[in-house]
Simulated scan of single mutants.
Amino acid sequence: MTATASAVDAPSKSFRRAFADLGAGLRARELWAMLAWQDIRQRYRRSSLGPFWITVGMAVTALALGVVNAALFGTSISTLLPSITTGLILWNFMNGCIVEGSEAFIANEGLIKQLPAPVSVYALRTVWRQALYLGHNLIVYLVVLIVFFGKLNHPYHLVDRPGALLHPGLGWTGLLAIPALALVLLNGAWVVLLLGVVSTRFRDIPPVIQSFITMLFYATPIMWSMDQVRAMNQGAKSGFGSIAVDLLQLNPVYHFVELVRAPLVGQQQSWTHWLVAGVVTIAGWALALIVLRNYRSRVAYWV
């Protein structure tokens, strides 16, 4: 008996059916890849630059935030701008997976009712669309890297204060960004699957996510860095400042951002980020598979 036939014979609420849905979705890569690219083309139809407006928008935002924050905190823009740029690029991907992922199945209502495709196809469509945005935005990172390579290629302080952390600068550790980015993409898939299914059943969840996503952005070191927070609270063994540093590190998005950003800009990377990211990945996929196992067949009735 083939694996497909075995999955068909399995009970509707079984992990075998859930894994079969994921496998069928991955094999239908031409479908979700085409749909994701069509989404981008449709958004920028009749535009002169087309999808490269994504890159322009990211460049303008990163430059503005870099200049303003460098002036406010008295930090060198040559080290702060690359950090902000990579942080924004990663945040845009994660934000897209969270916000658009919560509406992945709702937005595909017509296709779900008419096209006999695995549920995971629509989740992969959303993740791949965000990955294409990420690819366009990485062009901004390459430009920033070329401009400030001379500064990033040597050990440097992100914060110009006594006792500030000395970062090693760009080196072979930059290759760690490749598995780190793959891990971020893997987590994007379970986030879309989980939020997509749950939000299809409970339609109040997308507005709730929209309300709290801004708070999550400001609680994540995108426009600022943990170096700045530690420098401001240097020597504080207790009190609000010390507690704030500990609380900020409980944010899982922070660890995923640092996991990719640190090697890309030559910053020191803690293996704690890998540990937290690994635990979140395992727990997230376990929860997503449970939801897919129990409610995959109901998505078509809920949309």
Rank of each mutant, 00 (worst) to 15 (best):
F240V: 15
T173S: 06
I146R: 10
V68Q: 02
V8N: 15
P51C: 11
S6K: 15
T86K: 01
A5E: 15
T281S: 02
Q228S: 12
A62T: 08
V198A: 07
A300R: 13
S47W: 09
I213W: 05
Y44Q: 02
G235F: 02
D246L: 12
W190L: 03
A59F: 14
L65S: 05
T272I: 04
F52I: 13
I290T: 13
P155N: 11
I282R: 01
T220V: 14
L158V: 06
F15L: 15
G23A: 14
G169F: 05
S242V: 06
V291G: 05
R17Y: 07
V56Q: 05
V119M: 15
F202P: 00
L194Y: 05
I112S: 03
A219R: 07
Q228T: 09
V198E: 00
V245N: 12
V147L: 13
Y156F: 15
M232G: 09
A24S: 13
P11N: 03
I89T: 06
P221E: 11
M58N: 10
W32S: 10
A277I: 00
G66S: 03
F217K: 13
I77S: 01
L193V: 11
W285Y: 08
A236F: 10
K13Y: 08
L176E: 08
A18L: 14
S12D: 14
L248Y: 07
L152I: 04
V60K: 05
L289E: 02
W53G: 06
K13I: 06
N153E: 08
L175P: 00
V303N: 10
A123S: 14
T272L: 05
R230A: 12
N69L: 07
L111T: 04
D39K: 10
S225C: 12
T126E: 08
I106Q: 12
